[in-house]
């Protein structure tokens, strides 16, 4: 499902990192651990096609990411990869449901309002449909971000420190939801974190040094 081979990245400063090969199946949930400066976020952005590796291959659901053109990669990313970040950001001018519609539009998928409604209700956000995103609490925002990552049924969900801004209660809730939704979507879930609260919850871990 997600495979990398010999991926390396050279920063503009000249320093370069060689990453260990990764192989994750669909429906598997992984933690990507490592101290800061070990290139966790860089690897996540490489896997998501936001950065291009200087060497190596990345394959997602039989598609070689490195062989796609810029525009093809944009579309592929919109349809097959869902992103969740440390702090949930949205297009501020839009409401919750409009942000999700935008995610469908940008991925080139037809707008499906009922899917958005079902998804938000599953995440207990049915009543926030027409709220602006800055009217939500931090926990709610992170749940909307999960909904947005899932709206196009992606093959891969990449989460960058999704819990480090949350308190214990929200942390557990968000991770539980993430796992639940990833399982329902049969997607590979890869969480980049240095949050110790998560280390005990996931068996499969990759450690960057």
């Amino acid at each position: 499902m997600l495979k990398t081979h010999g991926v390396a990245y050279t920063y503009t400063g000249g320093s370069s990192i060689v990453f260990p090969d990764i192989s994750c199946e669909a429906d598997e949930h992984w933690l990507l651990l490592g101290n800061s400066g070990t290139g966790k976020t860089t690897l996540l952005h490489l896997l998501g096609g936001l950065l291009t590796p200087t060497q190596g291959e990345i394959t997602i659901r039989d598609t070689q990411l490195t062989q796609l053109s810029q525009a093809q990669r944009d579309t592929f990313r919109g349809q097959e990869i869902g992103f969740i970040f440390q702090e949930a950001h949205f297009v501020k001018a839009l409401t919750v449901s409009e942000n999700l519609m935008l995610a469908q539009k940008l991925a080139g998928v037809t707008t499906d309002k009922s899917r958005i409604r079902v998804l938000l209700e599953r995440l207990n956000l049915g009543h926030k449909l027409h709220k602006k995103t800055d009217q939500l609490s931090v926990g709610e925002r992170q749940r909307v971000a999960i909904a947005r990552a899932l709206v196009n049924n992606p093959a891969l969900i990449l989460a960058d420190e999704p819990t480090s801004a949350l308190d214990d209660e929200n942390c557990q809730e968000v991770v539980t939801l993430l796992e639940e939704q990833a399982r329902q979507a049969e997607a590979t879930l890869l969480i980049v974190t240095h949050d110790n609260r998560l280390k005990t919850r996931f068996e499969k871990q990759i450690e960057l040094v």
Partner: peptide, 18 residues
């Protein structure tokens, strides 16, 4: 103010042209 929004839209599949 919307720099992050721009990056975000790119992660959601938005092209440079968009």
């Amino acid at each position: 103010d919307r720099r992050y929004e721009m990056a975000l839209m790119r992660t959601m599949g938005g092209s440079q042209l968009f």
